[in-house]
Design a protein around this nucleic acid. Structure first.
Lengths: 97, 97
DNA sequence: CTATAATATAGACAGAAATCAATATGATGG
DNA sequence: CCATCATATTGATTTCTGTCTATATTATAG
């Protein structure tokens, strides 16, 4: 009962990278294909695929294949559930600024 | 307006390590000195100090010196504010499990 | 002032992670 | 079947991170 929730750790590890957060912000608006995501970055396509893989392992995004393309979308429930679950562990400070 | 919040990134990077989360859980109950924290880990004291430094830089913990000892306490407001701020960015999925 | 206790800092090292170039896979058009 | 486009995977390289040992700092006791 004093142990750490490793599921949440994979969520936080995924979210600890600014490029991945930027991808999440793009996907928060609408579903996008990999190449559409690439268009927003200087990074090369394999790096984007790598980050998408990390996000997908953490259940933060989901994907759908359509012809040659793969569309990614945000799993907003995962974000809410991990964040609110984490907050609740440390309740007592109330709502921050 | 499409840029990433780097303050929150330092929070998430800090929280992405299981040992640091465990420290946070210990401090959620009560203020503790460094050696009291050490007693809960197999890690050596300098590693604990390192983690405490990371948590402190991220404003997740605060410290107070008393004699030879340094007491750390959780800044629960920081946790709530970062988590809830992050959730709100990705609102739309509602409350998760 | 010296010894000791508590904590922090510095430096070294190993393992993890990010990026890239190159290539493989899979779908589609001709 | 062959060429092409979109994406994923592999392998190499570099950078970052966590841990350790050794040492410095700070406070207190004697």
């Amino acid at each position: 009962m004093m142990e750490v929730d490793f599921d949440c750790c994979s969520f936080f590890k995924a979210v600890a990278d600014p490029n991945r957060v930027k991808i999440m912000m793009l996907l928060a608006r609408r579903e996008l294909s990999v190449s559409e995501i690439c268009a927003h970055f200087k990074m090369k396509q394999p790096s984007i695929s790598h980050h998408l893989g990390v996000l997908k392992n953490a259940r933060i995004v989901e994907s759908r294949k359509e012809g040659k393309e793969v569309f990614y979308r945000l799993n907003a429930c995962c974000v809410s559930s991990c964040c609110s679950g984490f907050m609740k562990r440390f309740a007592g400070g109330g709502e921050g600024a």
